[in-house]
Amino acid sequence: MKIGRNEKCWCGSGKKFKRCHNGRENETPVSKGEAINHSQKNALRKCCYVPTDLKHECSKKIINAHTVSKSSSLKEIADESNHVLGLKINLANIIKNEGKLVPEKIGINQASTFKGFCSTHDKSLFSCIEDREFVGDDEQCLALMYRSVAKELYAKEGGLNNSEFAKSTDKGKHLLGQLSIQNFVADQQKALNASLAELSELKSELDDQLLGKSVGNLSHLIIDSTSPMPVAVSSIVAPINDFNGNLIQDLGDLSIVAEHLVFNSFSSDGKGYVVFSWSKNSTKVLSFINSLLALEPNKIFSALIRFFFGVAENTFTSPVWWSGLSDEQKDKTKNLIMSGVNPFKPTDNNLLVDDGINFSGWEISNLRKIHF
């Protein structure tokens, strides 16, 4: 490949070739320590995802905000040492576990936290779910949804930062290696930017509802039980396939605006809840929800387990519940956790379909449809 020194670099950086990839194969490769250091700094960046109109109220203290309540939910399922099982997703841990995501003990002070809100707004925005019993009113459901969307924005923005760093990992590699890395990162960034644009639009809608600028346009499904939920989660996903394996939406086509589903699983006052939330006009998400509701009641908990572990990383498990699982159930859960981790492995269309491996430990008492 011939390119002039003063021409724009082939990698798309916008820099001149002589200041970018000229002689890249002779540069010192990025070390493991440099990569880990970048990953750690990226995970500790601070911001407050409060609506712009409220930014002037921000305190100077950005805290470790919990996406799953520590006092009620995490403490409810923790062991005697106040630990739950969760995924420690950082580069150092991934290297240690040879690329595998493994459930490990995490203290409830650290579980589910991210530096995405200041102390003032973490209190004011989420006191409705932290300081009073969950009843499933509009304010509480909106707060749950808002926090999950903020956490996902934080994660996606972090992913974009990591992808920028990944561009430098072609140092010391031959031209084909450089091309492979730059093309992979470029494709990854296209997907990340598309997802960030969609999430930002959703957050903007939630901002307006939070500030009273628009009427609520959200639907919710609340599943509850008289016992605590052994798996706590707070996340958002654009579902691809439903619980029967049917295609919901093709996320490979970036021209299509993805429809998102927010979901939270938690405990409050000794009771367990699962809350699904989505925009009322998201017909594809409603179709996904209906495929869950069509299952036999005694199959829903197992379906939820497949869903939580199969699509969400921000998931925390009761060590007692986990220790009671059979080897087959544990292997199934570990396989669910690893689904989608390898970007070169095709998506399993039957990820959520019943395969005969069932789970117990939570009896559903009631299902509530709100603003369907």
Rank of each mutant, 00 (worst) to 15 (best):
M1W: 11
G4W: 02
C11H: 03
S13G: 07
G14E: 05
G14K: 08
K16I: 04
N22Q: 15
G23N: 15
P29S: 06
E34K: 10
E34D: 13
S39Y: 09
L44R: 14
V50K: 00
P51Y: 00
D53K: 01
K55G: 00
A65S: 13
S72T: 13
S72K: 12
S73N: 04
H83V: 00
L91V: 10
L91C: 04
N93Y: 05
I95A: 04
G99D: 07
K100H: 08
K105Y: 15
I106G: 07
I106V: 12
I106D: 08
I106W: 07
G107S: 14
F117T: 00
F117R: 00
C118L: 03
D122G: 01
C128V: 14
D131K: 13
R132M: 09
E133V: 09
D138M: 05
L144F: 15
E157V: 08
L160G: 00
N162E: 12
E164C: 03
D170C: 15
V185D: 01
K190I: 10
K190G: 09
L199F: 01
S200L: 07
L202G: 03
L202I: 13
K203N: 07
L206T: 01
L221S: 03
L221A: 03
I222W: 03
T226K: 15
M229E: 10
V233I: 14
I236M: 11
I236N: 08
V237N: 09
N246C: 11
L254D: 05
S255A: 10
V257P: 01
H260L: 14
G272A: 06
Y273G: 10
V274A: 11
F276H: 09
S282M: 05
T283R: 13
L286V: 02
S291A: 07
A294L: 06
P297V: 05
F301E: 01
F307A: 04
F308Y: 12
G310Q: 06
N314M: 04
S318M: 04
S318V: 02
P319I: 03
G324A: 11
S326P: 05
N335D: 15
I337F: 08
N342H: 09
N349Q: 14
L352E: 04
E363P: 01
N366T: 08
